[in-house]
């Protein structure tokens, strides 16, 4: 399995998608310039922009690498040669996932360093009222990365049932969009303001709330930007949620994939 992870990483580094996305990352250089145009709260703004850019790049990586990894292997008939080795379907799939997830973590670390450089540059020129808490920023980026790793697991589950890249890519995007708002919808449905809604809609929203991944909890941008203290227990809970949810997604994906035929 570790060799599959290694092969996956090699593949990503030599992939054109990755290289294109890395060009996007050069947008980091523009952040201080754009932020300084605002004249006010320059450092906060460059922090916000950096974190959003990281989030955006990781989203692209998660959707395109996660959504096409298995599909490409099947489409290009690599699965015949690889699955003809004494390698179980499960370890192959988990290895593919592991490599992609590891890459997202690496990318988050590299981008985090870039963000660190950008923000310290801005704050040196435009000192802030509240000092930046670097550890909060790092944890914010880490949880962002976890969020996208969870999304990759979703993409893998879609890939195991699909024969094209359509479902994995668009299904993943849809899940991401829906998963970002489930918390708000759930709170709205359970608030007095939702009296007008039919009970059926409420039930449906509640089911979806529990079924879809909840990405809201992974978002710590506000804490990082305004140097607010982190909710420690909340983070632990989110981490546990991450482990359980990814575990469930991967077991389902592995079960489906091991029954799948390579035609």
């Amino acid at each position: 399995m570790t060799t599959i992870i290694r092969i996956t990483l090699k593949g990503i580094f030599r992939d054109r998608v990755f290289q294109g996305i890395m060009v996007t990352a050069c947008a980091f250089l523009l952040i201080p310039v754009i932020a300084s145009l605002s004249m006010r709260q320059v450092t906060e703004l460059s922090l916000t922009l950096s974190l959003s850019l990281i989030s955006f790049i990781l989203l692209l990586l998660a959707v395109f690498l996660g959504g096409t990894s298995l599909w490409k292997d099947i489409e290009r008939r690599y699965t015949f040669s690889v699955l003809g080795l004494p390698l179980s379907r499960q370890s192959y799939m988990i290895g593919r996932f592991g490599g992609t997830a590891l890459f997202v973590l690496l990318a988050a670390a590299v981008l985090g360093v870039a963000a660190f450089a950008v923000v310290s540059y801005s704050s040196a020129i435009y000192p802030t009222d509240r000092p930046i808490v670097w550890s909060t920023m790092a944890i914010c980026i880490l949880f962002d990365a976890l969020k996208y790793i969870l999304l990759i697991a979703v993409a893998f589950l879609f890939s195991t049932v699909s024969t094209s890249f359509f479902l994995p890519v668009f299904g993943t995007i849809a899940t991401f969009l829906a998963g970002g708002v489930t918390q708000q919808v759930f709170e709205f449905v359970n608030s007095p303001a939702s009296k007008a809604l039919s009970p059926l809609v409420k039930k449906l929203a509640t089911i979806l709330y529990y079924l879809l991944p909840n990405f809201g909890a992974f978002d710590l941008k506000v804490n990082a930007i305004y140097s607010l203290p982190l909710p420690f227990e909340g983070l632990l809970l989110t981490a546990a949620y991450f482990v359980v949810y990814v575990g469930l997604l991967l077991s389902a994906a592995a079960t489906i994939f091991s029954r799948r035929e390579m035609r």
Partner: peptide, 12 residues
């Protein structure tokens, strides 16, 4: 095992 018209990870 040699598959029919084999294909291998072409970036390697």
């Amino acid at each position: 095992y040699l598959p029919e018209n084999p294909a291998f990870y072409d970036y390697l």
